[in-house]
Amino acid sequence: MMAGFLLRRLINYVVLIAVATSLAYLLAAGTLDPRSNYQERNPRPPESVVDARLDDLNLNDKSPLFTRYLTWAAGVVRGDFGETVTGDSVNDDLRRRAGVTLRLMLTGLAVGSVTGVLVGACAAVRQYGVLDRVTTGLSFAVLAIPTVVLANMLVIGATWFNDLVGAKVLLVSGEVTPGLTGGWLARLLDRAQHLVLPTISLSLALAAVYSRYQRNLMLDVLGADFVRTAMAKGLRRRTALVKHALRTAVIPAVTYFAFTFGTLLVGTTFTEKIFGWHGLGEQLIDSIFTNDVNTVAAISCVAAFAVLVAALAADALHAALDPRVRAG
């Protein structure tokens, strides 16, 4: 029964990913124009040469869209997403970039969610206190700032700060300084200097959302009987709050994670592009400018996969935290 349910769900997920990726491919192949990449070259290559090159890459708009789709789909079934407009393997390119995106996203997610949950919980414990009022106001302000504006504000702020101190403390471009010499300590410091601002840009909005949500959940739980019982049986206030109230209140926040994941992906895209990290998000934007149909389709596939994995992970975490789900 359970296995059948899981299997049906898994099949549904695979079908969803396949349809989403196919739609993205057809849309990209229909609107993007790889031929225009060659028309701006000087001297302009003869048409037969361009046709031959585009045929090699399965990007020729003279062959019917459906034929191109079948060729592409046959490759994808074998696990090959085709070639980029410059003839490199899309798989290799994305594999290299996935690590960058994963590092940025996991750091942002961890910092953002932990800060948000802690701030929200503390604000709820002293409702209408100073912290509660300040964080409520701040989260409203943060949620009104789009990521593209926030990232640029951070870059402007960092330039100003570096001028003020007279040293390059905060670095705003890339993940590491190319050609850096020195021991592992210097390299670690360099990475940290590059990481600070993108992490803030990514996690601030996340922290604001989570703190609002967690505050409301915590307020519902604080008045509950089981928290009073925990204190009545002699637990210290802190232990009762952390072990009984917070743990219960965190469960819905975990489920909420699946909803915020899409926003997180978009936020990562903007952050990577503005801070010059060579990850998937940057490639997403660049691939549209370079009419790179195969890369667009492959990134859609990765994004669809990631959204479904996030939904599954939220379910699994929910089960791990809530004994009722585990038993049922």
Binding site: L16, L27, G262, L284, I299, A304
Partner: peptide, 16 residues
């Protein structure tokens, strides 16, 4: 399906 499709990418591709 629409939840799974990356909205930003689809809108960007359609921009022409």
């Amino acid at each position: 399906l629409l939840l799974v499709l990356p909205a930003f990418l689809i809108l960007a591709v359609m921009s022409p």
